Amino acid sequence: MKQAILLICVIFFYTHSAFAKNNPDIKSQAAMVFNAQNARIIYDKNADKVMPIASITKLMTAMVTLDARLSPNEKITITQADVDKLKHTSSRLPVGSSYPRHELLRLALMSSENRAAAALGRTYPGGTQAFVNAMNQKARKIGMMNSRFVDSSGLNSGNVATARDLAKLVTASNNYAAIREFSTTSQHSVSPGNKRGQLQYVNSNSLVRNQGWEIDVSKTGYLSEAGRCLVMQANISGQPVVIVLLNSWGKNTRIGDANRVKKWIESNQGRRQA
């Protein structure tokens, strides 16, 4: 009997030791890695913890904007109402300058432009509150049951979700061609008019410029309350993989975590094929 118990303990130890070594060693506080093709959860960490999501919010902003089928070429003028009076963040879009709706959508997604996101919400039929209501309705429709949206930019820490819910958000976002294109644009320029020069923007996710990655959807986020966040859908080992990383504690940790996930999946795929 004692020998049998000892044997079970030995098996348990080695099995769990191997399992502990065979994980991506994610540093972010919460994470979800999800195969969008077969709906299989590959890895999760604190995936049901409700947390501020910062500018990951802008993926929902984009979906609600596109669902409304508003003219992408309609010129929208930046007003004082779009200026961040909560966190006092800066913006390169001057008050009084005008841009086509599709340009504001691109800047909100690729470079997390807060005034662009605020203007998209403000010019929605019924105004900002109607837009926020539509965001929460869309969240429920796609199964984000532990999420809440209070603005279109993500500057308010009241925008909250779980990593599990955000995997659903990314999966839904991937169904929009404009989101796939705009969120992965590596660099872009716009003209604010008034004889000003072109404003040059780059994607806030450096991985879209990395040839080792095939990224379909991307969004970064940062608030002091949320930490550094990153969500993506990418092709890894021939599979559509959703990666959600919330509250990464260091400036480069979310990028490091994403690379660790990719390497981990590719390594496991290699072992299965060996």
Rank of each mutant, 00 (worst) to 15 (best):
T65W: 10
T128Q: 00
R196M: 10
D257A: 04
N136Y: 04
I265A: 06
V50D: 00
A274D: 04
D48N: 15
S248K: 00
N268P: 07
G158S: 02
F131P: 05
K141F: 11
K262L: 01
N268Q: 12
V190A: 14
N235E: 08
L59F: 03
N73Q: 14
I26W: 08
A116F: 13
D151W: 03
K49H: 13
N22D: 15
A139R: 02
D48C: 06
L246V: 01
L7S: 14
R260I: 00
N35I: 13
N22T: 15
Q269G: 02
S97Y: 03
N159Q: 11
L70R: 04
S90I: 03
H88S: 08
M51V: 02
N259I: 04
L70P: 15
S98T: 13
L104Y: 09
N268S: 12
V132Y: 05
V170D: 00
R260G: 06
T77E: 07
I26K: 04
Y201D: 07
L207T: 11
N35Q: 07
G221P: 14
Y222T: 11
Q269M: 07
V202W: 05
Q273V: 00
S153F: 01
K58M: 12
S152V: 05
Q269F: 10
L246K: 08
N235D: 06
N235P: 00
Q37A: 14
V170Y: 09
V242F: 01
V244Q: 06
T220S: 15
N210L: 01
K45T: 01
E113Q: 11
L59P: 12
W249V: 13
P192Q: 06
A20S: 12
V33G: 13
A4M: 13
L93C: 01
F131Q: 03
K262P: 03
H102P: 04
I8R: 02
Q273L: 06
R272D: 15
D84V: 11
E214P: 00
T162M: 14
K2A: 14
A234G: 08
E103F: 05
G127I: 04
A177G: 06
S28K: 05
V10I: 15
T123R: 06
E266R: 00
T128L: 02
N268R: 11
M144Q: 10
N203R: 04
I265G: 08
K195V: 00
L104T: 09
G227F: 03
P52K: 06
A178C: 10
R122V: 09
T77V: 01
K87R: 14
S55Q: 05
L104V: 11
N252C: 10
N156C: 05
Q269S: 08
G221Q: 11
P52M: 09
T89G: 02
L246A: 08
V33H: 10
L7A: 14
P94G: 09
L207E: 12
V261F: 13
R180N: 15
L93I: 00
R271W: 08
S267T: 02
R164G: 00
T128C: 01
Q80K: 12
F19R: 15
T15G: 09
R115C: 01
Q198V: 11
V95M: 04
F12T: 09
P125H: 12
V64A: 13
V64S: 12
R164E: 09
V190D: 11
I142P: 08
V261I: 14
N146T: 10
M145W: 10
Y201A: 11
